[in-house]
Nucleic acid binder design. Structure first.
Lengths: 114, 114
DNA sequence: TTTTATGTATAAGAAAATTATGTATATATT
DNA sequence: AATATATACATAATTTTCTTATACATAAAA
């Protein structure tokens, strides 16, 4: 299965991360897992084994910047979008939205989006 | 990343196949690829390398039955849902719909579904 | 005092796709 | 007539992305 140019339906985690960072400025890993759980009412649980490698990869690709902080003696790594990251977020979000619409059309053509 | 009980967002191909067969009674592999392409306006292209193994697996799981036909001297394998397949389709579709709603909430909370 | 929550990280394995082939016939194009 | 494209199925090799398990460490709650 493929979507236009991308392995999107698989890599939606990356897009979710980018979208949240775009919305909220900066977040740390654990915060992202909790926010996603909250926004999806527990439906979607990001595992650490998926999250941290994804963050590291996005950073290596130059889409994220890191900033280390110490809060209550515990380590936090705040991530935020770079300029390249902001541009890429627009593209990936668009692709993800198209994917979602396609899935809707397949699964339930009666749904309408407004 | 996980969704409730399932590896769904990954396995959406299986659900798409089940849904189409549920709707249309019986279909053969190539027909499925073309139908999905049509329904998604070219957005979603199922590759043979993904499709045929998926069909074989669904058959092995007892969710599909096969019927071989020869049309214009060319082979066709028509697949249709078994009884177990029909039951399973209901569950998987429900899970996929929930997944789509969650993704919508994440990506675009302003969308409403009716 | 032990469990739960917070916080990051990585290695091993599984799942599901892509890409690249292979076989074969029918139809359309040059 | 020759070649390319569409139809039709299939599988092996590889890649991507996830889950599961483990590891370390501090704070708060039971």
């Amino acid at each position: 299965m493929s979507m236009g140019n991308s392995k999107l339906y698989k890599g939606s985690l990356n897009t979710i991360i980018l979208k949240l960072l775009d919305e909220r400025g900066k977040m740390y890993g654990y915060e992202i897992t909790q926010k996603v759980k909250e926004l999806t009412k527990g439906e979607l649980n990001i595992t650490e084994g998926a999250l941290y490698p994804a963050l590291h990869k996005l950073e290596a690709e130059g889409l994220l910047d890191v900033e280390i902080a110490k809060v209550d003696n515990r380590l936090r790594k705040y991530y935020k979008l770079t300029e390249a990251g902001e541009k890429e977020t627009v593209n990936r979000l668009q692709e993800l939205e198209e994917f979602i619409r396609s899935m809707q059309n397949l699964v339930n053509p009666n749904w309408s989006i407004s």
